[in-house]
Amino acid sequence: MSEKQNRIIPLELAGKRLDQALAQMFPEYSRSRLTQWLKKGQVSVDGEARRPRDTVTGGEAVWLEPLPEAAVTSKPEPLALEVVFEDEDLLVINKPAGLVVHPGAGNLRGTLMNGLLHHAAGLVELPRAGIVHRLDKDTSGLLLVGKTLTAHTALTRMLAEREIDRHYEAVCNGVLTAGGTVDAPIKRHPVDRLRMSVQADGKPAVTHYRVKERFAAHTHISVKLETGRTHQIRVHMAHRRHPLIGDQVYGGRLALPRGGDEALADVLRGFRRQALCATRLELAHPLNGEPLEFQIALPDDFQALLNALRRHAKSMAGDD
């Protein structure tokens, strides 16, 4: 358990709700967590229990006794994790396609969370073992983990305030003439609960994309997320009628380009995951503010897909 902390409410916070004042006084903890501790009696003001909505006058003595997180029940497992960066506060992992991030029905073992708990035992005390955002099972690439409660809270706040830039590369069906932005709200599909869909009453979702390379019937794009909804890039590109190659949920029929040989057809048929990789992260270090940038190469299967499309595009140009 963390040590009990004592602080005086500054006079400039007079008139604020207690939970708002606490969030400013203890920025290392989220407001929701502080509210939970208030309700559990882990916070006292001038020696008395108070409600989150109570107004402060300034000058009161606050005692806070943080509780450790007890939500993570997964077991540590020795998994081969590709660590891109690690210090006392932050961990950046290159997640391979096929690795589930969080345990769930049918995936209780062998997840990224199980591997993280083996890599750094202290993560058991953090929400979601410190994982700040998720990647779909079949999406590869960079994923952030906060190693301390202070770092995890800061990273979660930075993500919510759009202070972390997440860049992806993808290959979609169809030939895009130019880049653009998809600004379309997303929520759970009304019938198929495993899918997300664009709906007017969904949560705001904004995806920026630009063309990197055009092929005969496909386009290699770079994507930057402004928001982070479940399946956002996949849903938005399918909404634009340019679903990602290999997407088993939103992809529709396989697109075989005119004049493609059997080798290209085999590559396209064999690519059975969405062609999507989180290739770059840009952020300020959650504790010292140092600018950080992480970038990885595309995985082998993604690169092989691009090479096959390039060979075909070159052969078609030669025919012309």
Score class of each variant (00 low, 15 high):
H239G: 13
E262R: 00
A255M: 13
G260T: 12
A265S: 08
L254Y: 05
R253K: 13
P243C: 10
H236A: 08
C277H: 15
R273H: 03
L268E: 00
P243R: 04
M237L: 15
P257K: 01
R241G: 07
C277Y: 01
L264N: 01
Y250I: 07
P257S: 02
A265W: 00
A263D: 02
G260I: 09
I245G: 00
D261I: 10
I245W: 03
H242E: 01
G246H: 10
C277I: 00
I245F: 10
R269C: 04
Y250N: 05
Q248F: 09
V235C: 09
G246K: 04
R258N: 12
G251D: 04
H236I: 08
I245S: 07
R234L: 06
R234Q: 13
R253D: 09
G252N: 11
A265R: 09
Q274I: 05
R272G: 11
R234C: 10
L256R: 02
A265L: 10
Y250V: 06
A275F: 09
R241I: 10
R253G: 00
G260H: 06
M237I: 11
L244T: 02
A238C: 15
V235I: 13
R253L: 07
L276V: 11
P257Q: 04
Q248E: 15
L276M: 05
P257R: 00
R234E: 12
R273K: 09
G260D: 06
D261Y: 10
G260A: 15
I245A: 02
C277L: 04
R258Y: 14
D247I: 09
G270C: 12
D261C: 08
H242T: 02
D266K: 04
G246M: 04
C277D: 08
A265V: 07
V235N: 08
R240N: 12
G246F: 06
C277K: 01
Q248T: 14
G259Q: 06
L276N: 05
R272L: 14
R269K: 14
L256S: 00
Q274L: 12
H239I: 11
R234M: 10
A238I: 09
L256C: 04
M237G: 04
